[in-house]
Write a protein that binds this DNA or RNA. Structure first.
Lengths: 336, 336
DNA sequence: TTGTAGGCGTTATCAT
DNA sequence: ATGATAACGCCTACAA
């Protein structure tokens, strides 16, 4: 193993000079710097992470706590995880993956051991058990998602309420009056997942403003449950012409079922999905969809943690604006 | 921060005793052990990771290198990543997430810096650029996937050839004679992704043995490309009654298109998917599917790395047996 | 602009 | 069965 001392000897300077060349924390004359850099690359030197962490009091690692649950759309989680990792690297940080089966103690473990300098929590619940640990240990953290009490916490999330409102707005503009909202599984609402509730309430509120009639149906996301939800919708409100879907599993079945029931999209029924654009593009017809910038979530979460590490003040909550992309699945309400 | 020395003082023992209580590397009398453990929990002591890595020459971290590409089925990647993390924890290890945009240098970086004690590579290509780095640095590693030259490397993967054969076997047993294989995008075959080629050749070989006529069509996975592939299949081989799909994006469209073209599954056409069971269960009809145990991949990869870290010998390549679960989408070939 | 030296918290080797 | 102590490799005041 190549050490800093060996580099120093090879370059004919002292160890501290090499260290300072690396950290840039004091000015070095060009000739010295070049000799050191040459030595570094000739010897293939890589600073020892453990020693650096011990002496420098910073591991240059942040922990990313991911949920084990799979009822959230997995590709999005992955996209966020990857954007977090890439963003962290651009700050000279690495990312440690922590699964939520360790529970709140996982957070304590990585923070108290100095394994990680900061923590990013994904899939934050309204009353998240990891938050007390954060407060208690004073861990630098950023949350992806909104807990009930955000005081003193840095949070980023999609503006789900805005996304819901956007759906209502779009369908109202197209003249639809009866809208069904096909949502996540009942359990998601029962555990008061913030994103599900916020989307729904944003949607309901705007729908009310625009005088729309609204029906909300939770749905497991399987073909059968979608069929059940749809048939109940059509039984209860035969005049329904607009559908908002916030459940990736229900999209395919819904389109099939509408087709089977003789409804042509978008002539007879409009569909707006709350889902990532690549997914929306896969269907036929391509779906009008509302999406938030997933990779931006990761970037901002990392930025928040970095700010706190350098104790720079940051806004507590930042909500990312969703975008509605009109595609082929939505059109003017049919004339009666 | 609570240190080992503080725990020692609190328990009235020496630092080394505390260390040995923690590591279990020498016998400790019950009374002392209890005093030390009491002190540890009273003070809330967590060993400093950096110091431990420096002194012990082991970071207790393994790096997991994940692809950035999204043409592989993302939920599977996530499942593997999570199973790796959980398995690693059970060995007292944490997992560092490395994205492949760092390239082979990323591997060198984490290995040379001692950040990670070992590496797990996902999405390994036949001639993977990261492998020379592994060889050169002597890094303890496990590969998920099979490179062309496995000498000296520990590899785990699904038995894709076996999976392909299983599909052919199943359809042959049901009396089908003309089978179409709807595969991944052309690019996947062009870059000689091992899993795609191996599945196809395993399928072809068994099909030949059973006297089946076979047509292979790459497919982007969108509705349009699936429609294109299907219409060409039906034009070239109107007698086709069996479909094997190895492309998650093409499954939904294929089922829709078959229905639209008046073909009832499984009466007129049988469909066998190479996909995870949860996905297979989502469709209507539920799909007969061939799956490998994704979480087992993660477990074994971790086990391989651990073996190498403790320099225990291990088999070089282990292929996990796939399972075919018959569901509603496959049945006897229609009588002509 | 560069060098010297003490310390970071643990592990492991020697003693006892 | 337990203690003292020298590394481990780097960072950073303090000196020059």
């Amino acid at each position: 193993m190549v050490t800093l001392a060996e580099v120093a000897k090879h370059a004919g300077v002292s160890a501290s000079t090499v260290s300072y060349v690396l950290s840039g924390k004091r000015s070095i004359s060009s000739p010295t710097r070049e000799r050191v850099e040459k030595a570094i690359s000739e010897l293939g030197y890589h600073p020892n992470a453990g020693a650096r962490a011990l002496a420098g009091k910073r591991s240059h690692i942040i922990a990313l706590v991911v949920p084990l649950r799979t009822d959230v759309y997995v590709p999005i989680m992955m996209e966020i995880a990857i954007s977090v990792t890439v963003a962290a690297r651009s700050h000279g940080y690495d990312v440690l993956l922590i699964t939520n089966d360790e529970g709140p103690e996982g957070v304590r473990r990585v923070a108290a051991s100095g394994l990680a300098d900061g923590v990013i929590l994904m899939d934050v619940e309204l009353d998240d058990a990891r938050i007390p640990v954060l407060r208690e240990t004073g861990t630098h953290a950023a949350l992806i998602g909104l807990p009930a009490d955000t005081r003193g916490l840095a949070c980023v999330d999609h503006d789900f309420a805005g996304a819901g409102a956007l759906c209502a707005e779009h369908l109202a503009d197209l003249g639809h009056q009866d809208i069904a909202f096909i949502g996540y599984a009942p359990g998601v609402y029962q555990r008061h997942a913030g994103y599900a509730e916020r989307t729904l309430s944003g949607f309901r509120e705007r729908a009310a403003q625009r005088g729309l009639r609204v029906l909300h149906r939770p749905c497991e996301g399987s073909y059968e449950s979608t069929a059940g939800a749809l048939s109940r919708i059509l039984a209860d409100r035969p005049a329904t012409t607009g559908f908002v879907v916030q459940n990736e599993g229900a999209i395919g079945p819904l389109l099939s079922l509408l087709r089977t029931s003789g409804r042509v999209v978008p002539e007879d029924a409009s569909v707006v999905a709350l889902c990532p654009d690549p997914l929306a593009e896969q269907y036929s017809p391509r779906l009008t969809a509302v999406t938030g910038p997933a990779h931006e979530l990761g970037r901002q979460a990392v930025a928040l943690v970095m700010n706190r590490l350098d104790d720079r003040p940051t806004a507590e909550v930042s909500l990312l604006t969703p975008v509605l992309t009109p595609r082929e699945s939505s059109g003017p309400a049919p004339v009666r």
